[in-house]
């Protein structure tokens, strides 16, 4: 991403926010790719993130990623991040095993793509998709 931001004086808050979005995006992709994850599950706070879409697109020149269901919180230094992921489980899989797998792959992906250290990854399974058992 070598696009120059339109406004040269990018506020640190914007940088922090965009870093969080980048981290959340990496985590979201990793979670969705994990076997046993049907989809991520946004809560009401997902709506708030949508409002900042413009900030991201103006600063990075790329489309705002789909990160509903993931929260990334940067620490004071801006070098480490905490992740919170909510998802729906596929009923052919073990919840504990899938949660552990998501935690591991999210850590790896976020560090690889953003350079940030990952302090904690908290996962929540909000629902189990029982449809596969009925098939």
């Amino acid at each position: 991403m070598n696009q120059q931001p339109v406004n040269q004086q990018v506020s640190s808050r914007t940088v922090r926010y965009n870093t969080e979005v980048a981290a959340a995006s990496a985590a979201a992709d990793a979670a969705r790719a994990t076997p046993g994850v049907v989809r991520l599950q946004p809560g009401l706070w997902g709506l708030v993130q949508q409002l900042s879409r413009e900030m991201w697109e103006r600063a990075t020149g790329t489309r705002y990623p789909d990160i509903a269901g993931v929260e990334a919180t940067l620490d004071a230094d801006g070098t480490a991040v905490d992740l919170d992921i909510s998802m729906v489980l596929h009923s052919g899989h073990n919840a504990t095993a899938v949660s552990a797998a998501v935690q591991e792959s999210a850590r790896i992906a976020v560090t690889a793509l953003t350079g940030l250290a990952v302090t904690t990854v908290t996962t929540h399974i909000t629902d189990i998709d029982l449809a596969p058992l009925l098939a």
């Binding site: 504990t96 552990a100 908290t122 629902d127 189990i128 029982l130």
Partner: peptide
């Protein structure tokens, strides 16, 4: 859920649905 150092949980509501099933 016992995943190790990181915290993981599952909603009781979802577990109850599975158990009913």
């Amino acid at each position: 859920l016992p995943t190790g150092a990181d915290h993981a949980d599952i909603s009781i509501r979802a577990v109850a649905s599975l158990l009913r099933f």
